[in-house]
Write a protein that binds this DNA or RNA. Structure first.
Length: 342
DNA sequence: AACGCGGGGAT
DNA sequence: ATCCCAGCGTT
């Protein structure tokens, strides 16, 4: 059996599997265009499992395009807090405002792509899933599946190059009768069976079409180069006084974490504060950085000056502001220890 | 074409 | 510790 000579047989095997194996996701049980749009924006570079609680909260607070369009932006950002890639939230907000004013509404992939936050992948996903438009999605899952099905061991410089390379194949195997289910089935297969490590070929519904399975080369495909990881060290301060915590507010026009709060770093002060024994050391990875952050306790009396971007936030008001994800978590941890100690 | 953007799940 | 995730916008 060959993928490209018998695309209909491949499509059928995939569809039969998807009908029984698909996960019950909240945007599948009672589908709507709005749910499709929200889920696709949230799913960009984010695992489905990670976004599920965010999706539910979002739908409760912003049940439709109009409610989202009317919401204040602080509210929108607050509901995205912790999910990362915050431009997605700003784009989704703008998208809702543009969408409610649009007439006629977008109905094909190219029209969706004109809206903010919608690129080639998301336009194909929305139009195929919600509007039965025949556009093939090419995400990380689809790249992996197609590279393996065709036993393509080429080395790609980055993910974008691989996406481009497999787009013609994705178009060629698309089931144009049921493009939405076909696209979701491809991604579902990649997420649950054709995984990066330990692919479950013995239960794969399309293994008979898979050239890499026949050759035993599946696990090493696709071959995509990665960027070097950069190590970063940041010293931060834990300054509590009179029931308030000193936090740094990132500028609204910053490229990174705009408008969000974080624990102040020593670099935020004109003269580096004198540090004692560390309160905690945290390590995390983001994109191509490995960040080590050491948090030092400091008495406010030892501060020489206070830059304007630093703000005292009452401890019982912390839930009202948006902190970057890890800093929200650490703040909660340290407050717990702080109250236990006092 | 290359780069920056977050945070977390899985191994 | 490392890879990668239902990618996009900017440079």
């Amino acid at each position: 059996m060959s993928l490209l000579s018998q695309p209909e047989a491949f499509q059928q095997a995939l569809a039969d599997w998807y009908a029984i194996a698909q996960r019950p996701l909240p945007w599948r049980t009672a589908p709507s265009l709005y749910k499709t749009v929200v889920s696709e924006l949230m799913a960009q570079q984010t695992q489905i499992k990670t976004m599920l609680p965010y999706f539910d909260r979002w739908l409760k607070r912003f049940p439709d395009f109009q409610a989202l369009a009317d919401a204040p932006s602080e509210d929108v950002l607050k509901h995205w807090e912790g999910l990362g890639y915050y431009s997605r939230a700003r784009n989704l907000h703008k998208l809702a405002q543009e969408y409610v004013a649009l007439d006629p509404k977008p109905s094909i992939a190219k029209e969706w792509q004109a809206l903010p936050g919608i690129g080639p992948y998301t336009s194909a996903a929305i139009s195929s899933i919600a509007q039965n438009f025949p556009a093939a999605v090419v995400d990380g899952n689809v790249v992996r599946i197609l590279a393996r099905l065709t036993n393509d061991a080429r080395a790609f410089k980055n993910n974008g190059e691989a996406v481009k390379a497999f787009t013609p194949t994705a178009d060629a195997v698309l089931n144009t009768k049921t493009p939405g289910d076909h696209n979701q089935a491809m991604m579902e297969l990649g997420a649950t069976v054709c995984q990066k490590g330990n692919p479950l070929c013995t239960v794969c519904p399309v293994v008979q079409f898979c050239a890499s399975a026949a050759q035993g080369t599946t696990e090493g495909i696709p071959n995509i180069q990665r960027k070097a990881i950069v190590q970063v060290q940041i010293d931060r301060l834990w300054i509590v006084h009179d029931g308030k915590l000193l936090l740094h507010r990132i500028a609204d026009d910053a490229r990174q974490l705009a408008g969000q709060y974080e624990l102040p770093a020593t670099t935020h002060f004109a003269t580096k504060p004198k540090l004692g024994k560390a309160l905690a050391t945290k390590s995390r990875g983001i994109t191509n950085k490995r960040i080590k952050e050491t948090i030092y306790p400091l008495k406010p009396s030892s501060l020489s000056s206070q830059p304007s971007e630093l703000h005292w936030i009452a401890l019982d008001q912390l839930d009202r502001i948006t902190l970057s994800g890890p800093h929200r978590r650490w703040t909660k941890e340290l407050l717990k220890a702080h109250s236990a100690a006092s």
